[in-house]
Computed example of a mutant assay.
Amino acid sequence: MDISFKTDTLRITDEILALIAEIDEFKGAWRAIGRIAPERLSSLRRVATIESIGSSTRIEGARLSDREVEALLRNIEIKAFETRDEQEVAGYAEAMDTVFQNAEAIALTENHIKQLHRDLLQFSDKDERHRGEYKPLSNNVEAFGPDGENLGVIFETAAPFDTPRLMGELVTWAAAELERGKRHRLLTIAIFIVVFLAIHPFQDGNGRLSRILTTLLLLRAGYVYVPYGSLESIIEQSKEGYYLALRQTQGEIWSETPDWHPWVTYFLGALKQQKDRLAKKIERERLILGDLPELSQKILEMAREHGRLTVADAVKLTGANRNTIKDHLKTLTQKGFLERHGAGRGTWYGIA
């Protein structure tokens, strides 16, 4: 096959082997680890979904907070969104839901990638002409200063003329690699994503789509815990490292000796952080079920559902005595389940 990038230069270091082993250990243990009450598991997934949608769209410049994302998703059936940010959030939510519900049926093909791109941009008015189609114009990655001034091109993506050929090669290569399984699937997924972003095949939405595709490929590879922990939030919180790793690998990606190591180690490190956070949340859920009084469990569930909770809210929703509620909130805060915000009458509590 006339592939335009070389993968045999990937160095399998001890660090890479250790990261893969740790991630796969969690993958294998998930069947037992994830045995918590269904409503708790459902709550984890709901929170992770909100975090993923918020983070992935903010990475690309949207400004909606997780609370605003959650409010928007409650009314998503309206399908009338006033701002570009709302359109992007709604599209990301729809594409994620498609992947979560149908991952096993969505093989890695160009047609499926284009369909997911259409889903992602379905509410974006300005993207109507090019959604689901490869880019007609150049879309090099540019840097902008704090005042919005253009600092120039930091990475040249594939030319529109070359994009169909390169995408055809990339998808054919990745599908075959994943089917054969000779290379570890996490390494194949990592390479696929960094080359996809180097090509930047669509006029807009490439970053968001790359994270949707990451979730799809991980689910198809058996990492079924992915919907319960937000990988996107990990990337948002390490954005500088994310872009640095991309630039370091993409700079030589079409050469005879590309250096895959910066991106692969970042990618695997992000997956490790994702599973570490999820493991802590699961352990916390078990502690809740085993040690906390029923009223404390109700308070935590309300904090998850509403995003924030005041003493007055808790009194109204539970019917418990105000001083009793205060005692439970204090204990939950001391044990690290809740975080206290504000002071005086403005005090409220959120999930830690």
Rank of each mutant, 00 (worst) to 15 (best):
S124L: 13
E39H: 13
H117R: 10
Q87D: 11
S52I: 10
I154T: 04
D66P: 03
Y92D: 05
T49M: 12
V153A: 05
L121I: 10
E104C: 04
D127P: 01
L116T: 05
F155D: 01
I53D: 02
I59Y: 08
D119F: 01
G61E: 06
R45D: 00
E82D: 12
A71P: 01
A103F: 13
A95E: 05
N139Y: 04
T109Y: 05
H112F: 04
Y92P: 02
N150S: 15
R165I: 03
L41I: 09
E68M: 12
L64G: 05
G152P: 00
V153H: 03
E110V: 13
R118G: 03
D119W: 00
R46M: 07
L121W: 07
Q115P: 00
R45A: 12
N139E: 08
V89Q: 07
M96E: 06
E149P: 02
A48M: 02
R131H: 06
R131C: 03
E68K: 14
R84F: 00
E60L: 07
L166G: 01
H117T: 06
D125K: 13
Q122I: 07
G145R: 07
E133P: 01
L166P: 02
P136I: 15
V69K: 09
K135W: 00
T49K: 15
G152E: 01
E82P: 00
G145Y: 04
G91F: 03
P146C: 01
E77N: 11
A103W: 11
G132N: 07
F100W: 00
R58Y: 00
T163Y: 02
G132R: 09
G61M: 06
S65R: 10
P164M: 08
T163M: 02
G61Y: 04
T49E: 08
P136Y: 09
N75W: 07
P164D: 03
N75I: 10
Q115K: 14
P38V: 09
D162R: 07
A90L: 07
P38D: 10
R58N: 10
N102K: 13
E128G: 01
E133R: 15
R118V: 03
N139V: 07
S55N: 07
I78C: 04
S52R: 12
T157H: 05
L64S: 08
F100H: 09
R45L: 09
E60I: 11
R118H: 04
Q101K: 15
S124M: 15
R46A: 14
E128V: 09
N150Q: 04
E51R: 14
A48G: 08
M96T: 13
K114G: 03
E77F: 10
A90I: 04
A103T: 03
A71N: 14
L64C: 08
Y134Q: 10
E133L: 11
R67A: 14
L108H: 09
E82I: 08
E133A: 14
V89W: 05
A158Q: 03
D85K: 11
E104V: 02
E77R: 15
E88L: 15
P160G: 05
E39Y: 10
L108S: 08
K79P: 00
Q87H: 13
V99K: 15
E94P: 00
P164Q: 10
N102G: 04
E68I: 03
H117K: 13
E110G: 11
N75C: 10
D85Q: 08
N139T: 06
T57G: 05
G152C: 02
